[in-house]
Write a protein that binds this DNA or RNA. Structure first.
Lengths: 201, 201, 201, 201
DNA sequence: GATGAATGAGTGTTCATTCAT
DNA sequence: AATGAATGAACACTCATTCAT
């Protein structure tokens, strides 16, 4: 026994991820997690104060990866491609951990309020980043008029749904992933309705 | 005692809605609901076989209102306005019951599988309606190219998030609501990025 | 409504018998009984003060039939045949209501003590009758030596088991029933071991 | 805390036996058992998955002791004494645990079907052993003619009743016990009716 | 007499958390 | 550091009984 402390923590985290994946948060019992990690129950509480906090640790991980995934757009470069790259990165960050993504985005309310708060916090960070980017974009003229808050919420929501949808299916191929990136980009860039470009009947 | 059976059912439904709103699904105990409704526990089980089913009844209500909210677009009329009207209706259907909306769209996975199924079923119905409309639109030339499945998921996801966001805030004024309708319409119609309409640097 | 009071009581009794047959005492709910009798729950309590008492009423019925079934042996007649007739009658009284017999003899302990008492009381009555008969028989020289109490308990117990066994099976034919009568008579009359009638090895 | 696991199990078993004795199966609450054992409710479920299974464990114990109590009759020895010894052993096995015996033989129907099954299973084992022995005996000429099935059921039933009767009373003295053994043996060997050995009047 | 909606005390079971070893 | 036996508060659900109509 007595392996490295960090190592043990990582093992528990990994076990929790698996169990959450299989059973969802509520149905995942601490017993399941320690069984998966092959440690005793006491050990669990040596590393995490309670069940929620191991989920939070997992969530924080995801949040961090997300923040790193988004790059500031540099007007000096190919803007469209940078935007595409950001879409691609965000998609990738989530798809790297479908389980966590699913749980994460699926629980938003109706749970322990503290827990919900955690999920919200991460979302708000993302939202804030996107909103600021949109505001910048408006100043630079690469984003059209509109309430940046609404635009950000809508965009993130759309991507979330796409993600959730994708996570439910078998792992996406490279092409499928790229198609999604392209579609999202197109929606953001031109929308898809062509109403007023048609002669009124 | 012995008031009208339908009335009592409605009271329980209303009580449940309130309690779910205050505490979320898991934290809402049957005891809370019956206390809110001022009936005994036995009475609850006279009207609903278990806790889940009272939630499902609430969900079904919402689903029904949603389906009624969406109208088929008639090309002979003002298409843009009809689309706006659909956006407006869907928004309205949800905003009429912020609590339920929140709970409903917040739970998607990680809960009792049977329960999740319910929520999914409603979403899929909505999605199917939208996807079909988009496909029709493409044939009629009022919807641009793109995978209708992806477009539908993205659009619904965007609206969901907007909704969830709105539900968290104080009740929306008429103007705020209309602004959201307009913004969504604009995104769908033109997107918001203006990248390739700018001269490349 | 408002049919004859005795009639209603009988209907409830019949319904209870059926339900007890199908489900056993504990699993038979008052709701089941009133459903079977097509009356309301309130009506049940109009005729019986509680669930146990309807069972007791059924039990009393059985006890009465039993007592009537046993005839005093008249030494002036064919004694063997009279004993056989008594065996036959007791067997018949029980087999007339296999359900009640089963429940009745199956519950003896482990239930509400009051309830058990009822069952015991009936058994004791039977036992007392038999014991007295055996005592008489000993005086008359038609019953061999032995503790009449033990003989009575053993004999009744044996018949009870035979009965219970028979009740579990399909209804007995006339011949099967007669065979049991004959076997029991033979056991009581001669036993079945032939040990000391064999030359010791 | 944290005493030996087997020890704790035994304590719970003992506590359950007492409580079942005092209150019967249905009236014995898990709360009663854990109070008797001075452990928490959680501990109970650590050792037994549910209430029924602790009863089954008790029943299995009894069944095992019974099977060990019955010895195959060896014709080369004193057959009568061997039969007496078997009667004595079976009696002893039950009387060693009057409580359990009472509950065990008193419940036969009307309870949870699964539960009943357990009790029946044990009885059937006993019956099968006895029936086979009788069949052997008939071939060897030490058991008279008659349906071995009926003989077995009757014999076991008689003993059961004697047992139940004895269990209700104060603990039997050695002499009382031996008297029962002798009486049962005599019944089986010669019966107790002396009808046709008397001149008809 | 009859009804059936309402009651609420009661019960088996779960599981996150603790702590003596 | 690690264990795992022990805890006990919590909860969904049941059902015999009551009583206003």
């Amino acid at each position: 026994m007595a392996i490295d402390k960090t190592q043990r923590r990582l093992e528990l985290l990994a076990a929790a991820r698996n169990v959450f994946a299989r059973k969802g948060y509520h149905d995942a019992k601490v017993d399941d997690i320690v069984a998966e990690a092959s440690v005793s129950k006491g050990t669990f509480y040596l590393y995490f104060p309670d069940k929620r906090s191991i989920f939070e640790a997992l969530a924080d991980e995801l949040a961090q990866q997300l923040q790193q995934a988004i790059l500031r757009v540099d007007l000096a470069g190919n803007v469209a491609e940078q935007v595409r790259q950001n879409i691609r990165s965000v998609l990738g960050a989530f798809l790297a951990d479908p389980t966590l993504t699913t749980i994460f985005f699926s629980y938003a309310a109706g749970l322990d309020p503290d827990f919900v708060q955690k999920v919200r916090a991460v979302e708000h960070t993302l939202l804030a980043i996107l909103e600021e980017a949109l505001r910048d974009g408006q100043n630079l003229g690469i984003v059209g008029q509109g309430d940046p808050g609404i635009l950000a919420v809508f965009t993130l929501g759309g991507m979330k749904s796409l993600l959730l949808d994708a996570c439910q299916k078998a792992p996406l191929s490279q092409e499928e992933r790229e198609r999604i990136v392209e579609e999202v980009f197109r929606i953001l860039d031109h929308g898809y309705l062509r109403i007023d470009r048609q002669p009124a009947p």
